[in-house]
Amino acid sequence: MARTPVLRNATFAGSVLAACLLASTSSASAGAPPDAPGYTTARTGGAHDFEYFAGGWRTTQHRLKARGVGSNEWDTFPATLCMTPYLDGRVTADEIRFPTKGWAGFTLRSYDIAKKQWSVWWINSTSGRLETPVVGGFDGARGEFYGEDVDDGRPVKVRYRWDKVDHDHARWEQAFSYDGRAWETNWTADFVRADAATACSQGRPRD
């Protein structure tokens, strides 16, 4: 995601990263459920895993209306995302705006060279809270990232999945496990590459 505002963005991303590294030293949830099928925090990836995602994207979001209660009612809404790489792609930052919802989100990813592993943090504009990171990486076109969090007071295991469909399409999904036995997918997003000059302004969504 050759101007002075880029330097301000880089400074901001660096500040957020520093806060993330401090926050990651605290536990997300005491009494988390057992590991769900496939759960691992040892998955690794490559330093260029997210290079393909740089630029602007239009996306259709599908979010479960109620999590952890067996609901199958989904809310569908549009969004625009703009991603900027830093440090030769080993750090990325993107902002996503949901124009019909009136809120936005910010994702920061950093690649640990020694561990060969990505950490991914999310901040929702409605809370401003730095969420507990998920960690992992890509194996070919599939990326998986796992971690622990708390959902409305309930400890959960978290899984992010990324699929690089092709150069101009990608898919993301988020799933929680409340009991350690099964995953409930509660949020998915289908991405289509957009003209960054049209979709983004100074690395941020225009919408």
Results as ranks from 00 to 15, higher is better:
2 A>C: 10
6 V>T: 09
7 L>M: 08
8 R>W: 01
9 N>S: 12
13 A>N: 09
19 A>P: 01
21 L>I: 01
25 T>P: 02
28 A>L: 07
30 A>S: 14
30 A>C: 01
31 G>F: 00
32 A>F: 08
33 P>H: 04
33 P>G: 02
35 D>M: 13
35 D>T: 07
35 D>I: 12
40 T>W: 13
43 R>Y: 00
45 G>H: 00
50 F>R: 05
51 E>P: 03
54 A>N: 06
59 T>P: 04
61 Q>N: 14
62 H>A: 11
62 H>Q: 14
63 R>L: 03
65 K>E: 12
67 R>P: 07
67 R>G: 00
68 G>R: 05
76 T>K: 11
78 P>A: 15
79 A>R: 04
79 A>G: 10
82 C>Q: 03
85 P>L: 06
85 P>W: 01
87 L>P: 02
88 D>P: 03
93 A>W: 05
95 E>P: 00
97 R>I: 11
99 P>G: 06
99 P>V: 07
99 P>S: 04
101 K>T: 12
104 A>N: 02
105 G>L: 01
109 R>G: 05
109 R>Y: 00
111 Y>C: 07
113 I>C: 04
114 A>E: 12
116 K>A: 06
117 Q>P: 05
117 Q>F: 02
119 S>M: 02
120 V>N: 09
123 I>T: 12
125 S>D: 06
127 S>L: 08
128 G>L: 03
129 R>W: 04
133 P>L: 01
135 V>I: 06
136 G>F: 01
138 F>C: 01
138 F>Q: 02
139 D>I: 09
143 G>P: 12
144 E>P: 01
144 E>T: 10
145 F>D: 03
145 F>H: 10
147 G>R: 05
152 D>W: 07
155 P>R: 14
155 P>Q: 14
156 V>I: 09
157 K>D: 09
158 V>C: 08
162 W>Q: 07
165 V>D: 14
167 H>N: 15
173 E>C: 13
173 E>P: 09
173 E>A: 13
175 A>F: 01
175 A>Q: 06
177 S>L: 02
179 D>S: 10
179 D>E: 10
185 T>V: 15
186 N>I: 06
189 A>M: 12
192 V>W: 09
193 R>D: 07
193 R>H: 13
196 A>K: 11
198 T>N: 04
201 S>N: 11
203 G>H: 14
205 P>T: 11
206 R>C: 12
206 R>E: 04
